[in-house]
Design a protein around this nucleic acid. Structure first.
Lengths: 345, 345
DNA sequence: AAGGCGAATTAGAACGATTCAATCGCCGCC
DNA sequence: GGCGGCGATTGAATCGTTCTAATTCGCCTT
């Protein structure tokens, strides 16, 4: 008999209902669920039958309250509309599903306010771990999270202060190889399109591009800062370049990601600029769509899924041993992928 | 003074610590947080100061346990790697953020087992609402969820039994206009690529295509069933078509979504088939990348973000009045977008 | 037959916030 | 001066599960 019955709505079954039906105490039901070895096979079977009959579903809020922690992992991605990040998320998911840990996915959309509200949520929920690609200045928040027992791993961003473990892809190398490639095919004025400038990825790739140009001697970087990094921003960025006087117009574009690159490609084509003859374009990420673009896009391939699974694995390690003395940084290597948009000289 | 202090780790502040610091009772702190009107401005200020000083963050598990419900909304999408679904998710997010309701995003990746495990999670968490585009046969699960007080709205899928409110896009119309367009430009044998066949969207679009072909008289549909709906499946599907004897080879492909269409386009191009001359291609969804494909892709545009916001709005209505007598179905209209992949005759 | 042991089970106290009913203080009014 | 009334505050109970410590029971040993 359920302990509380309403004339219209049957109350949702709880441990005590299951216990009553199986003729045991609530503690035994809890043991059956959480430490089956402690319960005799016969009782186990009776309890299972009772659970099935009543359709019992444990209340996670109560469980978490008692446990003091939530076994879910929170993840905050920069832009859910960018296939690069969905690939990373899939890498994460694969690892977590195997450990049967729920993944809560949040999209900051490059807006600090949204990032903060997800951090609030994760903090209130006492998540056991958080994966984040930060937009705003959240180091204080992350420190607080860690102090409260939530493990933190940075994704695609090295922690400057080396406080947090991180998994990233070598942006310096990526920026360098993309730029060197453009220089090698004879380009000299390179428009770098991306933003905001404060974003770590943008900052590093741009700095590496400038360094490569300087080292080469006759190369030059023109920075066009955008507010976000989608195709629309790319179209806008391309228009800025086209407004420059002929003599200052770049002969190549290095886009901070492929979405921007695709936007640039569209705008240039629309304006009658020949790609790659007049302006070569290289993107970043090598998302699936780069290869099937109108003019197949050269890009700097990032092992996105691998990044995700490495991050998830690392996070699980940190959770298992939060006091683990060492902060680990894993850095994966990007790879140049040459296609038509930078073909020939 | 914190009520429990460890030599090494300062305990996380709780209501009673805040209360003690502010010189009030825990009940007043709770009121300050949840019903500020009930608390005098002076006390409110003191409590706020105490909260800031201690860095108090409320424990959501305790709150939810007491409240009996979680104010978060769960959403299960078919495929996070498909821009169509991320667009839908963004529409949902926009609405929910405005209501400051957390969105928990799960990716079923078209796998019933993953779908089920997210449903388990949402059920255990006593979510107040769930948005789902079902893969497997989950009607029983959804019914149970509803009986337990979680509101359910189906996305991009009409509930056959009309039990649940839903928001969808008219797949019948979409299948028809795509097929009619191919017939109008003179194509007769149309390969329909997508799957699995059980998926509602696939079923409906295919049926509509067949109906349109039949009505026309000389049209014919060849169905190539795939396991999923990504570019790889599209490449595989295209290869199946190419293996057919010349006489049976279609002169057009209707792909169940744009990812598949892009895969088909790649494989056909690689095999030296001219698009659209030899084989025309039309996709479905009109994702952003369709327009910038090697051969810009004709498609059936679906108002994805609008679908998402409509679904979220409807769900909030249902949550506000779960007993609301009427089950509502909103159907949005798709739109034909013609580009080069089906241009000319 | 008494004692001891281990496996299985259980009573009851947490976990931390919220809420209801009850109390407190204070003001104004007769 | 006493009392009604009202806003502000609070004590204690509650949400459902898990864990610790204690109990029960059957069986083996000596």
């Amino acid at each position: 008999m359920l302990n509380r019955v309403n004339l219209l709505v049957m109350a949702v079954a709880q441990v005590r209902d299951v216990a009553a039906l199986a003729g045991v105490s609530p503690a035994t039901v809890s043991n059956a669920l959480n430490h089956p070895a402690k319960v005799s096979p016969a009782t186990l079977a009776r309890i299972q039958a009772a659970i099935d009959e009543l359709g019992y579903i444990r209340n996670d809020a109560a469980r978490q309250l008692r446990a003091g922690t939530n076994d879910a992992i929170g993840m905050i991605v920069l832009d859910i509309a960018n296939p690069f990040f969905t690939d990373v998320a899939r890498g994460v998911e694969d690892v977590l599903i195997a450990e049967s840990r729920p993944l809560i996915l949040g999209n900051s959309a490059q807006e600090p306010s949204r990032e903060t509200s997800y951090l609030d949520l994760f903090e209130q929920q006492r998540m056991s771990g958080v994966l984040i690609t930060p937009v705003g200045d959240v180091m204080d928040r992350l420190r607080r999270l860690r102090d409260r027992g939530t493990s933190v791993v940075l994704v695609d961003r090295m922690s400057r202060a080396k406080e947090f473990s991180s998994v990233s892809i070598d942006d310096k190398m990526g920026g360098r190889i993309a730029t060197e490639h453009l220089l090698e095919i004879g380009r000299r004025r390179i428009g770098f399109i991306g933003g905001p400038a404060g974003l770590a990825q943008v900052k590093t790739r741009l700095a590496a591009a400038r360094a490569a140009a300087e080292k080469h001697g006759s190369g030059e970087i023109v920075f066009v800062e955008t507010e976000t990094m989608n195709a629309q921003a790319g179209r806008w960025g391309a228009e800025q370049l086209l407004e420059l006087p002929r003599t200052q117009r770049p002969d190549a574009v290095f886009a901070a990601n492929d979405l921007v690159a695709l936007g640039v490609l569209q705008a240039l084509t629309l304006a009658g600029v020949r790609v790659p003859d007049d302006i070569a374009i290289i993107g970043y990420d090598d998302i699936e769509f780069a290869a099937s673009a109108a003019i197949p896009l050269s890009s700097v391939r990032q092992p996105a899924q691998q990044l995700g699974s490495a991050a998830a694995t690392l996070l699980l390690d940190v959770i298992a041993d939060p006091a683990g003395s060492t902060v680990k940084h894993t850095t994966l290597k990007p790879e140049l992928v040459i296609r038509r948009s930078t073909a020939g000289a």
